Amino acid sequence: MDTPLDAAALDAALEAVHRAGMPGLFAEVRDSDQVWRGAAGVADVATDRPVTADMRHRVGSITKTFTAAAVLQEVESGRIGLDTPIGRYLPELLAGERGEAITVRMLLNHTSGLAEYLPCAYPSLKAFPALADTGPESLDEHRFTRFDPVELIGMGAAAPAVGTPGGTPGVYSNTNYLLLVRLLERVTGTAAERCITRNVIERAGLRNTELPAGPHVDGPHSRLYEAWFGMIDPPRDYSVYDMSWVGPSASLVSTAADLNRFFGMLLAGEIVSPSSLAQMKRTVPVVSQEGRTIDYGLGLHPMEGPGQGAFWGHGGSVWGGGALAMTRADGKRQMSVAVNLQRWNRLDSSGRPQPHPIDDALAALYRLAMHG
């Protein structure tokens, strides 16, 4: 039986995350016809401008669900084969045995074995477990760099493989989704941003969601503060940033309300067909960028709840900003949360992120939002 939304408890849980050290955050929780929206903290630490629940926000890899939905639509049309080798579509990017071994499905669920290009594009950034040897200099150096996606894909393809095609656990990699972006462009003959906008964003009726062309976020939004594991102290604002380093794999701007609307429609079979949605829910173990093994489908990530069934959605992170959107399988209970600080954990002597009060406060907010 559903627990009615407790607005006072949700307000308190949101405020607890702010008191734990988060400059600002905002959220929307839905349960059938009930809707709660809340915000706590500031959007600008210099002026104390408050965050509001309707702000637009960079949502990072939540974009991957939108991109995956656009790919599945082309699978439905017959222009893409889910288990067709990517080399048959993009031989100039992935040729030979590798191009024949890696399928579209493997790109969608991160089992291609292709490495992440990010440490190559940002030389001072190291992936887990080498975080202790990292440095934030590249963030400033590349604030207005316009990356070529073909070059980024080449970096990932040239790096040592992180697995065999189709092998599990897979390893989460933005290289996979940049290839899917190029695939969309090849089969539709239009820019991936336009394809995703027309077939997913507009189809879902999302009025405050876009793949921006420039480094700025239009409309009311928060500054985004990056701490890079305590190496940027105080955290620095990266809300103005050229997002070509991830392109349509993680550059979406949206709102909490739009995210809930999108995932509600997706889980109801209104964005892709029920059979495509079933494919999206077929999960495999994947090692996340934080080094944790998670279950991952085709652009969807499940989260189990005690006695409540599976929630489906995605999380995302950019420099300074993070978001999480989850919808219960029956579509009735939904949560979208956005935060304006990232990588708040400091590192221990072995280079592992240490626990922080923000972690516990966010976990408590998620439990309350999703399960009451």
Rank of each mutant, 00 (worst) to 15 (best):
D6L: 07
A8M: 08
A20P: 13
V29Y: 12
A40C: 11
H57C: 08
H57E: 02
K64N: 04
T65C: 09
D83P: 07
I86A: 04
G87K: 12
L93T: 05
G99H: 06
V104L: 00
A115I: 03
L118Y: 13
C120K: 06
A121I: 00
K126N: 03
L131Y: 01
L131N: 01
A132G: 00
P136Y: 04
D140W: 00
R143L: 03
R146G: 04
P149N: 01
A161Q: 07
G166W: 03
V181A: 09
G189M: 08
T190F: 05
R194M: 06
C195P: 03
T197K: 11
R198W: 10
V200S: 08
V217K: 01
S222L: 05
L224E: 14
G230P: 03
P248Y: 09
S249D: 11
A250G: 15
A256F: 09
A256P: 14
I271W: 12
S276A: 15
L277D: 04
Q279W: 07
M280Y: 08
T293G: 13
M303H: 12
G307T: 11
Q308A: 13
W312T: 11
W312M: 14
G313M: 01
H314R: 12
G320R: 14
G320F: 15
G322S: 15
L324G: 12
K332N: 14
R333I: 00
Q334H: 05
L341F: 14
S350C: 05
